[in-house]
Design a protein around this nucleic acid. Sequence first.
DNA 1: CATTTTTTCCCT
DNA 2: AGGGAAAAA
Length: 604
Amino acid sequence: MNVDHRVIALIDMDCFYVQVEQRLQPEFLGKPCGVAQYYTWKGGGLIAVNYEARDFGVKRGMRGEQAKELCPDFHVFHVQEVNGKANLTRYRDASADVFRVLNANYKLVEKASIDEAYVDLTEDIQRLKESPLKLTIDDFPSTHLAGFTTKTNDERIEIVNKWLKDCESDDEKRNYDLVLGAYLVEKIRKKVKEETGFFCSAGIARNKILAKLCCGFNKPRKQTILTHSDIDHVFDNTPVQKIQGLGGKAGDRVMELFKVDNMGQLRKYSLDALQASLGESNGCWLYNLVRGIETTPVSSRNLYKSISASKNFPGKTSLDTTEKVRSWCQNLAEEVFNRLEKDRAENKRRAKLLTVTCTSATNETIARSCPINEYSIDRFANDAYRILKQFNKSPSTSNIYSPAITNLGIGAGKFLDSVNSRSIADLFSKQTNKSEQIISTENTINWQEEDEDEDNEQEETITEKPPSPPVISPVKGDFFRKFQKNDEQMKTPAKIETKPSSSSSITSFFSRYTTNENSCNSIPEQSDDRYITCTKCNKPILAWDMPEHEDFHYARELQKEENKNTFQPATIIKPTKPMKRKNEKQQNDNHTLDAFINKKPKNQ
DNA sequence: CATTTTTTCCCT
DNA sequence: AGGGAAAAA
């Protein structure tokens, strides 16, 4: 029962941003609409278009003005602007409305994007089986079967009815849990509509990739089931790029390498053939997928791992003075701060790492990080600006910033629960009594001191609930993310491209840019108080990595403990990796991939 | 000059 | 840590 007897749904809100705006202004329901960011440049760029407008050929990415030409009745909603920057808060809040409903009804919900959720229904279906119920076509008002195109509702009913009959008479009842899954999804979608006002579509299948794929087959306001027996037929008509993870360069490479354009054509390739070109992990993943097998679990995570704000400054609008850069640091810092504060209140956690990203007019992107010691707009803005100063090539006497910045972003991540994970770990580990030296340095992550009163309470209650066991992920379905291009024959001479040599990388790297203003106080030299010595392994660990590092030790201990008692039956995973032992796996992968990448000749 | 703004995950 | 791919509205 481990193989793939799960039932997974992918729920996707229909043209979500448009629905959010229409909920606020219902008079636009039923009319062709879209949501655009900004408006001065050709009426803004559309990031969402509803189905009424799509009938006129309006597409995402178009300009508001262009949409008007195609569809004179088209209405453009504009994303809220704060300090001259698009602000997506309204949609994040609406997203939270949706997830409140999903989470209230199901335990295993994974937020896949602002408007998409995976739900693992397997257990709910088992429960449902205990009290049998008689389902009729009326329980499936918006359900379709993948692989069958129906023009009319009567046709749809005929198909679905036949399928329901088949499932009942099927002795093994292999498909019956998909029936129940579709039934549950009809119900949850109705509930979402009732409680949020939003319509959605859904796909129901035995794994995430298939659920995601078939969700797109009937939209909007419909759901589609993909049964095991229909997979071959569906894959014969599924372009490679339609598969999640293969929509970009990876998919192009697969098509080129194996001379295929749809998924079905990949069936004729052996596991070895796929692995030879794609590596052990990717080859295995694809081999199984083509046969309808994919084991990536639905993880129950609702919270963002990072919060960021960024803005493009294209062409003439690029940030070419220190004042502009300073000022936008302030604006972005303000947005990040506001969202971070809200997140702290709601989720009792704090971000520990601030990351500044910027793209220069030379089209080079850099990202640099520094620890967050204190939540404040000015701290974020100052830290960001101090980092950016390092990359300004103009003399400090000038107010010119060069090369000018065409994209600037500030983000925060590495969240740490205010209910400190370290104290939890300590409570459960053997030597409880020496946790004090972990956070002792002044310059490290001492935000705790401000919150002492509330922390005291929390520590008491901790003993009550044991920490959720570390999820040791099984053969995590890997995607194809290992393809890069190296075709920078461009005229842009690769600047100072003297790789930050392997040695003292950070120091040497910055030293190249500190011609003026070497008073970069918050990014200290190598007399590093950013490092803390781990008491468990005696290795120097970056301060902001310490909590994770601690978790690592903790998880390891737990695992040791568990291995004493239970024996792990080696992951039962299907007909996967036969030969190929662990012996040179790494070398093998790298080798084939390198050859693979370098081989690519045509790339204009 | 111009889809833009996010977010996550993988590779090195 | 930092760069980049992929995906979504």
